[in-house]
C-alpha cells in the first residue's frame, strides 16, 4: 500500500515536473508566456506621459529627458555600460529598458522602487541623472500652458509629483512589446519559429535558463543571486556599492549580490549586458550565465541557438511612438 502510494506520488511528481526533457514541444505548461498589452489605460495620460518622457524639461538644466537614456527607438535603453546624466555625469549602472518594465516585480536592478510611479522619482531627482528638484520642476511644468492645461484636464489640478509620476508610469505601462514571433509560436503557430530558434528555446529551458528568465517578460518577475553555482565575484577586481544588489535595499545578508532577473525580451537589441554593462556580447553573457548560474559550460553551438531563440522574443516597439 505504502509502495503503491509512493509510485503514485512519483508518477504525479513526474507529471508535474516542467521541462523535464531537453527538447519539449511548445505546449501548455511553458515557463514563458506571450505578452499581452495592459488594458484600461487612459489614452490622455499615456499621451501626456509620452510627452513628459521625451521632454528635457524634467531635468534641472533642460538637457536630459527620460528618453535620453531610455531611447524608445532603440530598445528603450542607451546601450552604454553606464548612463550619462546632466553635465555629463556618469551613473554606476546600466540603464534597463523601459519596455515591458510594467511587468517587473519591482524597478531598478536592486528592486528599490516597488512601482513604476516610485521609479519615476528616482532618475528625475538623482543628481547624476536628471538632477531636478520637484518644486522647481513642477513650477516649470505649471508655467507651460500646454502641460498645465493637460494636467488640469486629466487630473483636475495643476501638475504635482503624483500626477507627473502617474502620467509617466501610465505611459510606460503602454510599452508592451507584443506581437513577437515567439509569442505567435506560443499561441500555436508552430512555423513562427525557425528550427534553430525552436532548438534554442529547448536549450533555453533544458539548461535551466527558463527557471529564472521566465514568464511573459522572460525575466523581471523575480530576484536571483548572481553566482549560484560559482563565485562570479572572486574574479572581479573592484566591487562597488552597485554590485551589492538588493542588499543595499534590504540590508539582509541573503540579498548580497542579488539582482532583479532582467527581462530577455529585448536582449538581442539591448547590449551591453548585466547590471554594470560589463559584458558587450550576448554570447559572452550567456556563457557567463551558464557558468555562474547554472554550473555548466554551454557549448558555443548551443549559445548561438539560444541567441537565435532570443531574437524571436522581440516584439513591436512602435507603441512608444504613439502609433
Amino acid at each position: 500500500m505504502i509502495r503503491g502510494y509512493f509510485v503514485y506520488a512519483l508518477l504525479c511528481g513526474l507529471a508535474l515536473l516542467p521541462a523535464a526533457g531537453p527538447a519539449r514541444a511548445a505546449s501548455g505548461g511553458e515557463p514563458l508566456r506571450p505578452l499581452v498589452a495592459i488594458a484600461g489605460l487612459d489614452p490622455g495620460k499615456v499621451a501626456l506621459g509620452r510627452r513628459l518622457f521625451s521632454d528635457p524639461i524634467l531635468s534641472a538644466d533642460g538637457t536630459i529627458a527620460c528618453q535620453s537614456c531610455h531611447d524608445l527607438k532603440s530598445g528603450g535603453s542607451d546601450h552604454r555600460p553606464h548612463s550619462i546624466g546632466i553635465h555629463g555625469r556618469q551613473g554606476a549602472l546600466r540603464a534597463p529598458t523601459v519596455f515591458n518594465a510594467a511587468l517587473n516585480v519591482a524597478q531598478f536592478w536592486d528592486g528599490l522602487a516597488a512601482t513604476l510611479e516610485d521609479q519615476v522619482a528616482g532618475p528625475v531627482t538623482n543628481p547624476v541623472e536628471m538632477g531636478a528638484q520637484w518644486p522647481a520642476l513642477l513650477r516649470r511644468l505649471g508655467r507651460d500652458p500646454v502641460y498645465d492645461a493637460a494636467f488640469r484636464r486629466l487630473y483636475g489640478h495643476g501638475p504635482d509629483q503624483a500626477a507627473v509620476a502617474d502620467a509617466i508610469a501610465t505611459f510606460e505601462r503602454s510599452l508592451i512589446t507584443v506581437g513577437s514571433r515567439f509569442d505567435a509560436y506560443l499561441g500555436g503557430d508552430g512555423n513562427a519559429l525557425s528550427a534553430d530558434e525552436r532548438k534554442g528555446y529547448a536549450l533555453f529551458k533544458s539548461y535551466g535558463c527558463a527557471s529564472c528568465h521566465q514568464g511573459a517578460n522572460v525575466g523581471g518577475n523575480m530576484y536571483q543571486k548572481f553566482g549560484i553555482l560559482g563565485d562570479y565575484w572572486q574574479h572581479r577586481t573592484r566591487i562597488g556599492k552597485a554590485d551589492l544588489g538588493r542588499y543595499t535595499v534590504t540590508g539582509l545578508e541573503r540579498d548580497r549580490y542579488v539582482f532583479k532577473v532582467p527581462s530577455l525580451r529585448l536582449a538581442v537589441v539591448n547590449g551591453p549586458y548585466f547590471h554594470d554593462g560589463s559584458v558587450a556580447s550576448l554570447e559572452e553573457a550567456i556563457r557567463l550565465m551558464g557558468r555562474y548560474q547554472l554550473g555548466q559550460t554551454i557549448p558555443d553551438g548551443d549559445i548561438h541557438l539560444i541567441v537565435d531563440f532570443l531574437g524571436s522574443l522581440v516584439g513591436d516597439m512602435s507603441a512608444a511612438e504613439g502609433k
Binding site: 508566456r33 517587473n104 516585480v105 514568464g215
Partner: peptide, 12 residues
C-alpha cells in the same frame, strides 16, 4: 510554479 508572473501580480 513554472513562472512567477502570477506572484508578481499578487505582489503588485
Amino acid at each position: 510554479m513554472q513562472e512567477y508572473d502570477g506572484v508578481v501580480r499578487t505582489t503588485h
